[in-house]
Simulated assay, not measured.
Amino acid sequence: MRIEGRGAPYADFPWNEIVPGLFMGGHHYRDSSGGLLPVVVGSEFDVVVSLYRRDGHGPAEAVVHRCCEIPDGPLTSRQLAEVVELGEFAAAAVREDRKVLVRCQAGYNRSGLVIVQALLTLGYSLDDAMFLVRNRRSKWALSNHLFVNYLTTGLGVAGLLVGLDD
């Protein structure tokens, strides 16, 4: 599920490299005429983390593929823990010199949440990680203010706080 109404256009590229070996993308992007095209991942990456899934978008069978569908909205404590785990998984793969793609529907919010967590795991500050995502992917990245609040609170603490409602 993707929250509509933010006014964000789809990206101009299927994916963008945020730091060496760590890419952020979506399942669709705009071509030069503004038309919407599907992003089909083959074997360009060693690891793909999908937070949104559609049949026919890859990756190739030999690629390590972790899929964890999460909404582009409020997350449960379990989903926040999964984001932390996926960020750590992506960071570990980057440390092993593997080429990693983290993707969601448009490639802005859900993928941005995991990418920032991966960057934090790799030693970047929160401000630097969020700047890199917005600068290298799109100014529309991390436009979900709830996700930014989760990040500034810390995903572990946010998970505990959200868990109080369970």
Rank of each mutant, 00 (worst) to 15 (best):
L113M: 07
N109K: 11
Y108I: 01
S125H: 11
T121P: 11
S111R: 02
D97T: 10
R103W: 02
R95K: 14
A118Y: 00
K99W: 07
V100M: 06
G107F: 01
G112N: 04
S111C: 09
Q105C: 14
L119R: 09
G107V: 01
G112M: 02
D128E: 15
Q105W: 11
V114K: 01
S111L: 04
T121V: 13
V100W: 03
Q105P: 08
R103Y: 02
G123Y: 11
R95V: 11
A118P: 03
D128P: 11
R98P: 06
V102N: 03
R95P: 09
V114Q: 00
D127R: 12
L126Q: 09
Q105D: 13
T121R: 15
Y124H: 15
A106L: 09
V100N: 03
E96I: 01
R95F: 02
Q117A: 15
L113K: 04
D127W: 07
Y124C: 15
E96P: 08
Y108G: 06
L126D: 04
T121F: 08
Y124G: 14
L113T: 00
L126Y: 05
L119K: 07
C104Y: 00
A93R: 14
Y108T: 06
A93E: 12
V100T: 03
R98T: 04
S111E: 02
D97F: 11
V116T: 09
D128F: 07
L120K: 11
A118T: 01
L120P: 13
V94K: 04
K99C: 13
K99E: 08
G107S: 03
D128S: 15
G123W: 09
A118R: 00
Q105Y: 14
R103V: 05
L120N: 04
L113F: 07
L120M: 11
L126V: 08
L101I: 07
N109E: 05
N109P: 10
G112H: 04
A93V: 08
Y124L: 15
R110P: 02
T121C: 13
A93I: 08
Q117R: 15
N109H: 14
C104V: 10
Y108N: 03
L126F: 04
L120V: 10
L126M: 07
C104A: 10
E96D: 14
C104E: 01
Q117V: 13
C104D: 10
K99L: 12
K99D: 05
L101T: 12
A106R: 06
S111T: 05
C104F: 00
V116R: 14
V102I: 12
L122D: 11
S125Y: 10
L119D: 00
D127H: 12
D127T: 13
Y108R: 04
V116Q: 13
G123K: 09
I115E: 07
R103N: 11
A93L: 08
